[in-house]
Every structure is written in structure tokens, then in C-alpha cells.
Design a protein around this nucleic acid. Structure first.
Lengths: 205, 205
DNA sequence: TTGCTTATTGGTCGCACACTCAATAGCATC
DNA sequence: GATGCTATTGAGTGTGCGACCAATAAGCAA
């Protein structure tokens, strides 16, 4: 068993240590919130002195931004993978929407709220949030566009549709603590169906 | 001019002092965020020692919750007044939607995000958030219901419609920092029009 | 084995926070 | 003008935070 007091110091390659730190920070961000990313907390997690975290991230703000970026990018890949292993755009979109309807999505949804709020005070984080917003919108927009060229979707403004879906998703996430009737949880799908000229239920099979 | 160093102590009625504190805290919450509500900050604002704030709010959490409640309730009354001086439900709803489309709305929108996030760590605030969510939804739901009985709106589930409008509003608020094209900003109105069986543009005159 | 680079430590500083409580002084009442 | 109640102060406690830096030891290369 690993003792609570650190006995022996383990020396690692800077790159791997840095990655380790970011991974730990991202996990904490998802589970407990970005303000729980402190030098002491991360150090404890990795059984390392807080000073070491400072060594890799001279400014703690940078670590917070990096942790958010890592978590958000990871979640995007899990929810809406770039490579669509044989799926049609419609099936791919339906998969995304079903994944965002699950309870697992609440964690990343909370993280988004957390980040948007905190970015009010932290410029570095603000930039990362903007970057990830663009990444999420871009990924969704590309999917919509492919669906249009494939003849499955019909819309004049793929970007706008992507934004609308994300707005509904975020709005729903904001209400994650309250009781949400099924009809409300279906909002993202019905919005997508309306905007893409799909028959009702096309995305919730 | 009021000196920066406090010279003379002013003695006030407990009820008015308490109200003063809450008002100051609510203003700070709207302008700078709930985490800026500190004993020092409020004391400074009222030219009073921090200990006095502690005297009225033995737990700072209670003050934060009270400040949010006060600000949210005040904003609700400003955006969607209870008494509709002669307006029809449709005109009243249109007024609400136009007010929430203005830049002024961003402050309260940010406050909601702030409160939802912070309520993760503060149970007292969480209860207040739930209370205000119910108040906002209730006020909107009542308006929808009146519009239905007046024959202006048509829907089977006024509560659901109210929730949908609020979800879109919150989702839009979450994206307040990003560039929002006009078509996106029209989302709450178009959503309401669809859900209430109104002709397009009925709510944006 | 020896030496050297450098990842890691331990200790310290200053700051901001909430909270406590005896002492003080404003002010209404007599 | 004196008195008593109590709103308000001042001083202090303890906690947790980021940041800093000289000293140390891990582990690779010679």
C-alpha cells in the first residue's frame, strides 16, 4: 500500500510528468470542479510535493486552462468521434444526441458551466473556452454539412443549426439539477429534426 | 466626499441595516459575481467594519444566498412584471422576450450561471436557486396559461412551454461571450411562437 | 563506480478569507 | 443631562491559497 507520507521520490521524464499532471487535473475538473484544481490537491493526487506542480505550471491559471481543454477535447471525442466507423451522418448524429441525453453527460455539462463562469475572471481559461466552443461547433457543423451533401439533412445554414443544437444542449445542462420531464429532454433531438427537415422521431430511434 | 478611513460610526436600525447589506451584496453579485461577496468587500461598500456583516449574517453562505435571491427576484419583476398594466398576454410575452434580448440581460444571465455553478458547493444557495427557478417558471407558466384561456395561445402543456423557453434563454445566456448571429438571438421568440401556435414574427413586432 | 544533470523536495513568505468576542460609543429614553 | 441598551468596532485566530528558492537525491552517462 502506498503510504500517506511520501517516502521515496520518483523521478520522471518531464513530458510524462506534465501529462500526468494535466490528466489528474482534468479528472478533478470533471468530478469536482475547476476550483478544486489547486497545487496542493494535484500534488496529493500524484503523491508529489505542491512545489513540483508549480515547477511545471509556473502560473496555476495555465494548468486550469489546460485541464479544461484536455477534458473538453476528450469528451468531445467520446461524444462525437471524428472518424465515423461506417455510420451515416444521421446515425452518427442520433448517437451523439443519445449520448448527450445520458446521465454521464451531466459531468461535462457542469464543467462547461463551471468554465464559462470562471473564464470571467481568468483570461487564459477564457481563450480555452472559446477554442473548445469552436471545436465543438465545428465538429457538429461538419457532420451537418456532410449530412446535407449526402442528402439526409436539409438546411441552408449548417453552422446555425449546429449552434442551435448546442444552445439547447447547454440550456438543458444548466437545468441539470432540476427535474426535467422527458419532453424537455427530447428538446435537442426535436430541435435537430426541425432544423434539418427530418420527420419526428428520426433521431431518437 | 466620504473619507476612505471610517471616522464616525453610524448606528442604524437592524432591519434597515440588514436590507442595506443585502442590497449591496445583490448589486455586487450582478456586477462582479457571487464570489465577490466577501465580508470585507461588503463592509467596504457600506463603509463599515467586516465584523458587522458577520453580526447580521453569522454564516457568509446565507448572505450569498440572500443576495442571489434578492437579485433574481428583482430581475424577474423587471423583466416580467406580475401586474400587466393593460397588456394582453401576447404583448406581455413579447415585451419579456424583447427585454431578454437586450444586452442588459447578460448580467442576470451571467448571475444565473454563476449561481448554478456555485450551488454545487453551497447547499443554502442551492435551495435559493431552486426557489427562483420555480418562481421564474411559474411566472412564465401563468402568463402562457392566461394567454391560452384568452384564446391568444394554443398549447396543451403551458408548464412545458415555459420550461422550453427558459431552457433556450439559458442556453443562449451561456453563449453570451461568443458571437451570436441574429438568427440565434431570435431563438427564444421563434421557440415560443412554435410552441404556442403563433404565426412567425408574432412575438418580435 | 563515479560524476553530473536536473527533477524533486521542504520550507517560507504574503495574502485573502470567514469567524469570534470583549470593548466601545451612538442614540433613544427618561 | 444622565442612563441603559445594543449596534458597531478593533483586534485577533486559524485556514488555504499561489508563489518562490536553495538544498537534495534520482538515475543516466562516462
Amino acid at each position: 500500500m502506498s503510504s500517506s507520507v511520501s517516502r521515496k521520490r520518483v523521478r520522471k521524464d518531464p513530458a510524462t510528468r506534465r501529462a500526468e499532471i494535466v490528466t489528474a487535473a482534468a479528472a478533478i475538473a470533471l468530478a469536482e470542479g475547476l476550483e478544486c484544481i489547486t497545487l496542493r490537491r494535484i500534488g496529493e493526487e500524484l503523491d508529489v510535493r505542491p512545489g513540483l506542480i508549480s515547477h511545471y505550471f509556473p502560473s496555476a491559471d495555465d494548468l486550469v486552462a489546460e485541464a479544461f481543454g484536455s477534458a473538453a477535447a476528450g469528451e468531445l471525442d467520446a461524444l462525437l468521434p471524428r472518424e465515423r466507423s461506417g455510420d451515416t451522418p444521421l446515425r452518427h448524429l442520433a448517437g451523439f444526441l443519445s449520448r448527450t441525453a445520458g446521465d454521464d453527460y451531466d459531468a461535462i455539462s457542469r464543467l462547461w458551466i463551471n468554465a464559462r463562469h470562471l473564464s470571467r475572471y481568468r483570461p487564459v481559461l477564457r481563450d480555452r473556452v472559446a477554442e473548445q466552443e469552436a471545436a465543438w461547433r465545428g465538429r457538429l457543423e461538419d457532420l451537418v454539412r456532410e449530412g446535407v451533401t449526402a442528402g439526409e439533412f436539409r438546411t441552408e445554414d449548417p453552422r446555425l443549426v449546429a449552434m442551435k443544437i448546442l444552445v439547447v444542449l447547454d440550456g438543458l445542462g444548466a437545468h441539470a439539477t432540476a427535474a426535467r420531464p422527458p419532453a424537455l429532454l427530447r428538446m435537442p433531438a426535436t430541435t435537430a429534426e426541425q432544423e434539418l427537415a427530418l420527420p419526428p422521431g428520426a433521431l431518437t430511434s
